[in-house]
């Protein structure tokens, strides 16, 4: 759809109201403010170190054009030069001497010129500094962090899905003594964010010998009250007849859970899985407290460490930031509607 059409489209043209126009203005401002910074990050991440140091910065990643000239083994940088007679032409620079630059005509390499450096302007072209992406993968522990994050996210999500769905199953399908007490315990934990039990959880993890192990990140958050609630709410809507039919069909309680209830709870499990992936991928404070060795850093912790160490090497930092946000962005593009309705329905994040 054309932008103009999008802007002027209305449900009925007879009731044009100033609030409609204000609404579109607000939304467009929103697009710039919300997407702009991310776009700027992505564009910047493709600039060379020299490009990043430019002020004012260019919008697109640009770098100086280089050209191979016969007789010179290395490609030479290309400049637009204002000649003494006022004409301009493109010359390649062989070397610079003080405020003079020795230049050569690429079309006629035998012809050399001496040009004052303030008479020449670099010829620039759009180019992506992909080495910003490839070098951190080779030079830093970035792949290690990535692997750690993937491990934590996948394993923690699987554990979360399993134990929370088991608890939700018990709390939705059965009547048993102590059910209310168990529900209360689950609600109680809703009120205890990790921020206020940081120190004692650290002690527990130490006692279990898990400090500087990825399990220290995975285990403490595996049982989430929000997960239990979400799944229980969904399981309560399953027809009771199905469970009884399975019982009549000689299914054990575990089989009822695993072969009947779990497949039917897939939509809710998917929502919880997406949330769990987001939580785990983005988790910061707790891993920061419990992971102190570089080998076990997750992406977020690694990125935070980099931003301390690489203050002068923004090109790597930016590229790694982009790599960190890319999986989330991909998940978002494909599951946006799913996630937003999930949040709207459950009010959790």
């Amino acid at each position: 759809m054309k932008i103009a059409q999008l802007l002027t489209a209305r449900r009925d043209a007879s009731h044009r109201h100033w609030t409609d126009i204000a609404a579109y203005a607000y939304l467009l401002l929103g697009v710039v403010l919300m997407f702009g910074p991310v776009l700027w990050l992505v564009l910047s991440s493709f600039k060379t170190q020299a490009g990043l140091l430019e002020f004012p910065p260019s919008l697109l990643p640009m770098s100086q054009k280089e050209i191979s000239v016969a007789g010179y083994p290395q490609p030479l940088p290309l400049f637009t030069v204002t000649m003494e007679d006022g004409t301009t032409r493109q010359l390649a620079q062989v070397r610079r001497v003080g405020i003079q630059s020795q230049m050569v005509d690429p079309d006629n390499p035998s012809q050399q010129y001496r040009v004052a450096i303030d008479k020449r302007v670099p010829v620039r072209e759009f180019s992506l500094a992909t080495e910003n992406y490839t070098e951190p993968l080779a030079r830093f522990a970035f792949p290690r962090f990535l692997a750690n994050s993937v491990f934590v996210t996948v394993v923690a999500t699987l554990i979360t899905l399993l134990i929370n769905s088991m608890a939700a199953y018990a709390l939705s399908i059965y009547e048993f003594k102590g059910k209310n007490a168990a529900m209360l315990m689950v609600i109680g934990t809703l009120m205890i964010p990790i921020t206020i039990i940081l120190v004692p959880v650290y002690l527990v993890v130490t006692k279990l010998g898990l400090v500087n192990s990825l399990w220290a990140v995975i285990l403490p958050g595996a049982a989430t009250p929000t997960g239990v609630f979400l799944l229980r709410q969904y399981m309560l809507t399953l027809p009771r007849d199905l469970i009884e039919a399975a019982r009549m069909d000689k299914a054990s309680e575990w089989q009822i859970y695993w072969r009947i209830v779990m497949p039917l709870t897939l939509p809710a499990l998917a929502v919880l899985a997406i949330f769990s992936i987001m939580w785990r991928w983005n988790e910061f404070l707790w891993p920061l407290a419990v992971l102190t060795k570089t080998e076990v850093y997750t992406l977020q912790i690694g990125l935070n460490a980099f931003q301390g160490e690489l203050q002068t090497q923004w090109q790597y930092l930016l590229a790694m930031t982009v790599m960190t946000l890319t999986p989330v962005a991909i998940v978002f593009v494909f599951l946006q509607r799913f996630i937003t309705t999930g949040i709207a329905n459950t009010g959790m994040k």
Binding site: M1, L6, A9, D20, A23, Y24, L27, G30, V31, M34, F35, P37, V38, W40, L41, S44, M278, W281, N282, F284, Q300, L303, N304, Q307, W314, L317, L318, T321, T324, L325, V328, A329, V331, F332, Q336, R337, I339, T340, K349
Partner: peptide, 29 residues
């Protein structure tokens, strides 16, 4: 309004970003 789903996505997108990424994006700006 037209394109409501798109605009909603735009406002929602940063929610998914990790705090470290958010901070670095703005630190850079």
């Amino acid at each position: 309004i037209r394109g409501r789903g798109f605009f909603r996505a735009v406002y929602f997108f940063p929610v998914l970003l990790s705090p470290v990424v958010v901070a670095l994006i703005w630190k850079w700006i």
